[in-house]
Simulated assay, not measured.
Amino acid sequence: MPHNIAILGASGYTGAELVRLIATHPTFRIKALSGDRKAGQPMSSVYPHLRHMDLPDLVRIEDIDFAGIDLAFCALPHATSQAVIAKLPSDLKVVDLSADFRLRDAKAYAAWYGKPHSAPSLQKESVYGLTEFYRDQIKSARLVAGTGCNAATGQFALRPLIEAGVIDFDDIIMDLKAASSGAGRSLKEHLLSSEMSENVKAYSVGGTHRHLGEFDQEFSAIAGHDIRVQLTPHLIPATRGIVMTCYLKGDPEIAFQTLSKAYVNEPFIQVLPMGEMPQMKDVRASNFCHIGVAGDRIAGRVTVIATLDNLTKGSSGQAIQNANLMLGEDETTGLMAAPVYP
């Protein structure tokens, strides 16, 4: 049975990625695309790589008729989604790709994002969109909050280990390498080619990265008490992809067995053989996450590395995985394409 889909914010990277993925989805039909700054333009003029698709032109959100729309993906900037979603029909299913509904606590949202939440009732209603761990809640949800791409990568590496209690919760160090598309499509000086090329730059050092709010929320809920991780993110000269390296205290073999058991039936999470390390290129443009585990010459230390594509598994692919569940489809539908290589 076909499902009619609207994509709000289709002119951004995650919006375009949604369109690309839905192109091969057997039951999703794109009925409306919004892009306020590009309103009136065909999608092919904004993204020529989508020229082969028969797509509606971009319009303003207020010009969309939501009658007959089964689900809307909201790929709008942070702090914009909450106001837009509050005005959508109350029976419309929504998957939000922004940060607006990821944090359940209004005070935590205000602390991390610098302003009060404008739709606190929706914030309480939303379900966190890490599909592998919130599958049952997502199936019956009206509003799903997509995870941060960096937060998803780190959680895939660590959630099973925290739940099993096999690592030292007080000594978790995370080193993030992130490609430039995670910062969006708007013009930013530090993302110019001449600034990025041949350069690696740390940012949000000292515990200021906003995705730490998601780690605080999720890891603390699993453990039953506060967990605070140390995270240092780096911007690397790549277009898409994330590598998260986690330095932990624990037994490497136990960590490996714990992760392997946790993900044995998960179609998109693959734990590599012990000692084999993942690389970004192996998951490029796919909905897969690869995880590697290795011991260290120092006894009692373990390194866990996870990698995924920030635009796919970290955002738009995970959003479609959630939408599949919300609309009664198998969650893998339209998402099993192999990564692009080289």
Rank of each mutant, 00 (worst) to 15 (best):
P26L: 09
F169S: 09
D216V: 02
G114M: 04
K124Y: 02
I5E: 06
S11L: 08
R210H: 12
P116Y: 08
G275F: 14
R20Q: 10
W112S: 05
K139R: 15
D282I: 00
D70F: 14
R284C: 02
E198A: 13
R37V: 00
I167D: 10
A262W: 02
K87L: 02
E253S: 09
L76G: 02
Y47I: 00
R301W: 05
G207W: 11
A75E: 01
H225F: 10
L122M: 11
R102S: 12
E195W: 07
L18N: 07
G129Q: 08
R29A: 04
S315G: 14
D57T: 08
G250R: 03
G182Q: 07
N287M: 04
D36C: 07
E125M: 12
V283P: 04
I298N: 11
T14E: 07
A72W: 07
T312W: 15
D296R: 07
P160R: 07
N4S: 13
L55Q: 02
E62H: 14
G213C: 06
A141P: 11
T131I: 09
A183V: 01
L130C: 05
K177N: 11
I242V: 09
T303D: 09
S186V: 05
R142N: 05
F256A: 05
E218M: 10
N4C: 07
Y263H: 11
K188P: 00
P116D: 06
L192W: 11
I22Y: 05
Y203F: 15
L212T: 00
H225G: 01
M326H: 09
H3R: 15
D63T: 05
E62M: 05
L311C: 06
A238C: 05
S118F: 04
I222P: 02
G146E: 06
E218L: 14
I227A: 02
R297V: 09
R29M: 01
G334H: 09
S286M: 05
Y134R: 13
E218W: 14
N322W: 03
L88M: 08
M196D: 01
L327A: 11
H49S: 14
A141E: 07
Q279N: 08
E253G: 00
A338M: 10
T24K: 15
S118D: 02
H225S: 12
M274V: 03
I291T: 02
D63W: 09
V340Q: 11
P233G: 10
E62T: 05
A67G: 12
L18V: 00
D105I: 05
L327F: 12
N322I: 01
M53Y: 11
I222V: 14
K313R: 15
P77E: 07
F101P: 11
D36W: 10
L231V: 15
A141C: 09
A178C: 13
S34L: 01
S220N: 09
N287K: 04
G15H: 12
L272Q: 06
L55Y: 03
E163K: 15
R142P: 04
I172A: 13
T239M: 14
L191E: 00
E266T: 04
G68M: 11
G154W: 11
R297Q: 13
T312Q: 07
A178V: 14
I269W: 07
D36T: 10
R301A: 01
A23L: 05
